[in-house]
């Protein structure tokens, strides 16, 4: 007998049957069972085989396949973030710089390593900065670019990879190992470059990322 109400026993029986204890709705039961099945499948496919050492849920599939390791982040994404934190003040978000003051990066021969500008010149420019007059896309600029040697090789490589790939630029990526190599060979220079001095350094092309990834 149901005691969740204050009525007399006769009323109890009638009322119980009529409103509180109708047979379970098949829709409701169906929905619950569907939910349970969904839960089961989700657990089966996303639990990494219930292994203690698997942390990525897409790592192991139900058939016990190979462990997939999380891919490293895209250097262009990281480079874009670094750009927006460090470079945007002068070179602007659209890479166009400020006419007469800060040179553009979009279509700049320095950035895409065109003509007598090589990959190592770009890296050296980042490491030590620049002072004095500079020609960019036929325009003359005379401002000071600070040095960025405090950034790591990975950071410089990501930044350069990013600026070489945005705003219509389409130059190959710069590899962190290349930055390391250039930084090592650059023991002599500590002041910011002057244009003639920088372009006098023999050009070196980035050979590209090593084959094994």
């Amino acid at each position: 007998m149901n005691h969740d109400h204050p009525h007399s026993p006769q009323q109890d029986e009638a009322a119980c049957e009529s409103s509180t204890n109708r047979p379970l709705s098949p829709w409701l039961v169906g929905a619950f069972i569907l939910a349970l099945f969904w839960g089961g499948f989700y657990l089966a496919f996303n639990s990494g085989g219930f292994r203690q050492d698997v942390y990525e849920s897409n790592a192991v599939n139900w058939a016990g396949g190979a462990v997939v390791v999380a891919a490293p982040p895209d250097p262009k994404v990281v480079g874009k973030r670094l750009y927006s934190q460090n470079c945007i003040v002068c070179h602007q978000a659209n890479g166009m710089g400020v006419p007469g003051q800060f040179p553009p990066l979009a279509g700049s021969e320095w950035v895409i390593s065109e003509g007598n500008h090589a990959d190592n010149h770009l890296v050296l420019l980042m490491l030590n900065g620049h002072q004095g007059p500079m020609q960019v896309k036929g325009q003359s600029y005379n401002n000071a670019m600070p040095q960025w040697k405090q950034l790591t090789d990975d950071q410089i490589a990501s930044l350069l990879t990013y600026i070489r790939s945005d705003w219509g630029n389409n130059a190959p990526a710069i590899d962190p190992a290349f930055v390391t190599q250039i930084r090592k060979g650059d023991g002599s220079q500590s002041d910011p470059w002057m244009q003639a001095q920088l372009l006098a350094v023999p050009p070196v092309k980035d050979p590209g990322a090593p084959a094994a990834k």
């Binding site: 619950f32 939910a35 989700y42 996303n46 639990s47 942390y55």
Partner: peptide, 27 residues
């Protein structure tokens, strides 16, 4: 979080299935 993948999956499933008692209690 820093827990095996099955715990993350368990969290997703248990929070979703928690709707079952919620629905029943509301009914």
């Amino acid at each position: 979080g820093p827990v095996p993948a099955w715990m993350t999956a368990g969290g997703v499933v248990s929070s979703a299935l928690f709707l079952i008692p919620v629905v029943i209690i509301l009914i």
